[in-house]
């Protein structure tokens, strides 16, 4: 995205504060319907339907976990095959070197291990966490209550439709508790 006027002038966006999760979902839907796309909603707990309301539909976490799990599965089995067949073939009572039923427990553990690690690392990476600084915390009531009992909707300045006065006026129509400018 090219640099907008607001990027240069130190405004991250405009933020509205709500008291109720239902109000936030409703506001998010109306904002999306009004044509805004660069926005985010913030809540102290997950709310059903909120991500969809701001137009977030592509969740790649499960794909990452699948890839991680398959890697663990193939890697785990491959490790045991390589140990028993190639690196250290060991004749135990005339059984085949690649006695694969005995590989199942370790293959399973490796599958779970890599799938779980990729779930966590993938989720954090896609969320761009850890993030030591973020402009939304410049709004005092956000820093105070966004993780406790208030619900916020932020329209970002990078949205092509963003205009400080118009966007502010638009958010005020949604009956928020408060509307604040978010400084960078």
């Amino acid at each position: 995205m090219s640099e907008t006027y607001w990027d240069r002038h130190g405004i991250y966006g405009v933020m509205a504060e709500f008291e109720d999760p239902e109000q936030l979902v409703e506001a998010a839907k109306r904002t999306y319907a009004a044509g805004y796309r660069q926005m985010d909603a913030y809540s102290p707990m997950p709310i059903d339907g909120l991500a969809e309301a701001i137009g977030f539909t592509r969740n790649w976490v499960s794909l990452v976990v699948l890839i991680g799990g398959l890697t663990g599965c193939i890697g785990g089995f491959g490790l045991l095959y390589w140990i028993a067949e190639i690196a250290y073939p060991h004749n135990v009572g005339g059984r085949p070197f690649n006695s694969w039923p005995m590989w199942i427990p370790i293959t399973f553990e490796c599958t779970v291990l890599l799938a779980a690690l990729s779930a966590v690392i993938g989720m954090l990476a896609m969320n761009k966490l850890p993030m030591p600084y973020h402009p939304v915390f410049n709004v005092p009531s956000f820093a105070e209550r966004a993780s406790v009992d208030r619900f916020f909707l932020c329209i970002e300045a990078s949205d092509p439709k963003f205009d400080l006065e118009h966007t502010k006026a638009f958010l005020k129509e949604l009956n928020p508790e408060e509307v604040a400018e978010v400084e960078k």
């Binding site: 985010d40 997950p46 991500a51 309301a53 779970v112 799938a115 969320n127 993030m131």
Partner: peptide
């Protein structure tokens, strides 16, 4: 980790948490 409760973050978080639950069960 600078968690800020973004709806997009929650969506990924819930998916990851659910899958972790599904993996931890077996």
């Amino acid at each position: 980790l600078g968690w800020r409760g973004s709806a997009k973050h929650w969506a990924r978080y819930q998916m990851a948490y659910l899958l972790l639950g599904g993996l931890a069960t077996p």
